[in-house]
């Protein structure tokens, strides 16, 4: 059965705050995990409740996010959704880690400290 993953976004990064994410990416991984479909969605409203509702109605089974409040985390896990929270870094890299089975809550996947890029 394909795995459905939702990642709230802040630009190219995993959104630092679940409740403030304005867009999200829906990823569908086929059973062999080599074939994947991605769909970028602009959320109709910035709201943790609405996002939780969307996660359930879209039948997601995994969420990769940044900071999330305890009540929403508990709600999603109670609904049997795997939540990797506190993840920092580009969403594609976080997804790759998930596919490799190496993603953990609280992972910081970021550019090297020396990178002279603006923080966004």
């Amino acid at each position: 059965m394909p795995q459905k993953i939702l990642i709230p976004l802040y630009g190219r990064e995993v959104a630092p705050r679940f409740d403030l994410a304005a867009e999200a990416v829906f990823v569908t991984l086929n059973t062999d995990q080599h074939d994947r479909q991605e769909k970028l969605v602009v959320l109709p409203q910035v709201s943790a409740e609405k996002l939780c509702h969307m996660i359930l109605t879209e039948g997601m089974d995994t969420v990769i996010c940044g900071g999330i409040e305890e009540e929403y985390y508990q709600y999603l896990t109670w609904k049997r959704i795997a939540v990797y929270d506190g993840v920092i870094g580009p969403w594609e890299k976080a997804l790759e880690r998930l596919i490799c089975g190496a993603l953990r809550s609280g992972d910081i996947i970021t550019a090297s400290p020396e990178a002279d890029t603006d923080a966004g």
Binding site: P16, G66, I108, A111, A115, A119, G120
Partner: peptide, 16 residues
């Protein structure tokens, strides 16, 4: 160290 401020502080004002 080296991480964007908004990713660590995660404050509403940093993001908005």
């Amino acid at each position: 160290r080296g991480v964007a401020c908004h990713s660590i502080i995660k404050s509403q004002v940093c993001l908005k």
